[in-house]
Design a protein around this nucleic acid. Structure first.
Length: 273
DNA sequence: CAAAGCTCCTGACCGC
DNA sequence: TGCGGTCAGGAGCTTT
């Protein structure tokens, strides 16, 4: 489940193979992922240079010499593999292969196919149009968060997953941030005080930054081993710890699991209120 | 409009 | 060992 930090790490791993290189050959092994590929997908990429590779929320963006953009989303099981190190020539669920002018063979593998790739025309926003602020940027802060939560009646957990409110958070890091600041995922978003919003915004940034740093070091190990730039399982303080002792000092509570809008939430009912 | 529910998909896991 | 059932989740879509 690549969230913002994993996508950032993957971007960094792809950077040397893609940025400044041209698409020499693009191969599709099926007609669609979650959505159909854009019309003439391979022809539109062929020969084009990737001027810049970047990330917006959980999207990877390759800005092309034509002014178009290749938009890539990894869904929850997508990964990129920088090819040659791989044992088998082709694995199950290899859906897209980019051969780059610099010699890299980049494979997109995605068992569940929740990911997708689309080409945006020059100036077109597409699925980026309604994204909220980047959480690590100056456009996101306690004040911004407080303002955006002001009239939200939904639980804070659900609100933070809404990409229009803030873009790039997923289930795991939302729960980790709420745990760290002692706020229950069930609290109505509009009930958070200004101080709580400030603490939460700061913690969100820290949780993401820590994960990016950890991903960077993991990436080095992975890339050398098998070229796989998939997401990495970090260790989490609350996510997935149902029934375990709360890891907050002197709390002594027990982590429970509930469902919110169909998604699992983990939290400590004793220290998160 | 907001909020909640449904849906896509496959692999992992569990109990028998 | 195999089999059926359940779960995981991003985000677009549908329903309320």
């Amino acid at each position: 489940m690549p969230e913002l930090p994993e996508v950032e790490t993957i971007k960094n791993g792809l950077m040397p193979a893609m940025q400044g290189q041209c698409f020499k050959h693009v191969q599709l092994n099926r007609e669609n992922l979650r959505f159909a590929f854009s019309k003439n997908f391979t022809a539109r990429l062929d020969g084009q240079k990737v001027e810049k590779l970047s990330r917006r929320a959980k999207f990877l963006l390759a800005e092309l010499s034509s002014g178009e953009k290749l938009l890539m989303h990894l869904g929850m099981s997508g990964s990129f593999i920088i090819g040659n190190a791989r044992a088998k020539q082709k694995e199950k669920h290899d859906h897209v292969i980019f051969e780059m002018s610099g010699g890299a063979r980049i494979i997109y593998n995605d068992p569940r196919r929740f990911g997708f790739m689309e080409i945006l025309e020059k100036g077109e926003q597409g699925r980026l149009a309604n994204l909220g602020p980047e959480p690590l940027s100056n456009h996101f802060s306690g004040a911004v968060l407080a303002h955006r939560l002001a009239n939200k009646k939904s639980p804070i957990k659900t609100a933070l997953l809404d990409q229009r409110l803030v873009a790039g958070l997923g289930n795991i890091y939302v729960l980790e941030a709420l745990f760290a600041v002692g706020i229950s995922p069930k609290r109505p978003a509009c009930d958070l005080s200004y101080e709580e919003c400030a603490k939460l915004a700061t913690e969100i940034k820290q949780v993401l930054q820590r994960a990016i740093r950890a991903g960077g070091s993991t990436l080095n190990d992975f890339a050398h081993a098998d070229g796989n730039l998939g997401y990495f399982q970090h260790s989490f303080l609350v996510y997935g710890r149902k029934g375990e002792q709360c890891l907050q000092e002197k709390c002594g509570g027990k982590i429970i699991q509930i469902k919110q809008s169909g998604r699992s939430s983990f939290y400590c009912p004793k220290c998160q209120n």
